[in-house]
Amino acid sequence: SSYVCVECNFLTKRYDALSEHNLKYHPGEENFKLTMVKRNNQTIFEQTIN
């Protein structure tokens, strides 16, 4: 599966890399929402900020 930060167009295969991205680029933000999307037999988790 892949993880994408929709706000930044940041894409990674690792959830911990997304967490690091959030700490660096969205410090103090807590209203993240992950949406699971299936595309071409791949699972993509799209992160948006509410």
Rank of each mutant, 00 (worst) to 15 (best):
S1H: 00
S1C: 06
S1T: 08
Y3T: 08
Y3L: 08
Y3P: 01
Y3E: 00
Y3N: 01
Y3I: 04
V4W: 11
V4M: 13
V4Y: 14
V4T: 12
V4G: 09
V4F: 13
C5W: 01
C5N: 02
C5F: 00
C5A: 00
C5V: 00
C5T: 01
C5E: 00
C5P: 00
V6Q: 08
V6T: 05
V6S: 05
V6K: 03
V6I: 13
V6G: 04
C8A: 02
C8K: 00
C8P: 00
C8E: 02
C8Y: 01
C8Q: 00
C8I: 01
N9M: 05
N9S: 10
N9W: 03
F10Y: 04
F10K: 04
F10E: 06
F10H: 13
L11R: 10
L11N: 13
L11A: 07
L11K: 11
L11G: 09
L11V: 08
L11T: 08
L11Y: 09
T12V: 11
T12N: 12
T12G: 07
T12W: 03
T12I: 09
T12R: 03
T12Q: 07
K13C: 07
K13E: 13
K13D: 12
K13A: 14
K13G: 10
K13Y: 03
K13T: 15
R14Q: 14
R14K: 07
R14M: 15
R14G: 14
Y15G: 08
Y15A: 04
Y15W: 05
Y15K: 12
Y15F: 07
D16S: 14
D16P: 14
D16M: 08
D16N: 08
A17T: 13
A17K: 13
A17L: 14
A17Q: 12
L18E: 00
L18K: 00
L18D: 02
L18P: 01
S19I: 02
S19D: 15
S19E: 14
S19W: 04
E20C: 03
E20K: 05
E20V: 06
E20Y: 03
E20H: 12
H21F: 00
H21M: 00
H21V: 01
H21P: 01
N22F: 00
N22R: 03
N22Y: 01
N22A: 02
N22V: 02
L23I: 04
L23R: 06
L23Y: 06
K24Y: 12
K24W: 03
K24H: 05
K24C: 11
K24T: 09
K24F: 06
K24V: 08
Y25K: 15
Y25M: 13
Y25F: 14
H26I: 00
H26G: 00
H26T: 01
H26P: 00
H26R: 00
P27N: 06
P27Q: 09
P27E: 11
P27M: 11
G28F: 04
G28K: 13
G28L: 06
G28T: 08
G28C: 06
G28H: 12
G28V: 09
G28Y: 03
G28R: 06
E29R: 11
E29I: 04
E29Q: 10
E30N: 05
E30P: 06
E30D: 06
N31M: 05
N31Q: 07
N31D: 14
F32T: 15
F32Q: 04
F32N: 02
F32V: 07
F32M: 02
F32K: 14
F32Y: 13
K33P: 08
K33Y: 01
K33D: 08
K33W: 03
K33E: 12
K33I: 06
K33G: 07
L34A: 10
L34H: 05
L34I: 01
L34N: 05
L34P: 01
T35F: 03
T35M: 09
T35E: 13
M36N: 15
M36H: 08
M36T: 15
M36P: 14
V37L: 08
V37R: 09
V37D: 09
K38N: 12
K38C: 04
K38D: 06
K38P: 06
K38A: 08
R39C: 05
R39G: 11
R39V: 09
N40C: 04
N40D: 13
N40F: 03
N40P: 04
N40A: 11
N40T: 11
N40Q: 07
N40L: 05
N41F: 03
N41A: 06
N41L: 06
N41V: 07
Q42I: 05
Q42P: 05
Q42Y: 13
Q42L: 10
Q42D: 14
Q42C: 07
Q42H: 07
T43E: 15
T43D: 15
T43N: 10
I44V: 12
I44T: 08
I44C: 08
I44D: 12
I44F: 08
I44E: 11
F45N: 10
F45I: 15
F45V: 08
F45P: 04
F45R: 11
E46Q: 02
E46V: 01
E46T: 04
Q47W: 01
Q47T: 01
Q47I: 00
Q47H: 06
T48R: 11
T48W: 08
T48L: 10
T48G: 12
T48D: 09
I49N: 11
I49Q: 04
I49E: 13
I49G: 05
I49V: 14
I49Y: 13
I49M: 05
N50Y: 05
N50L: 08
N50G: 08
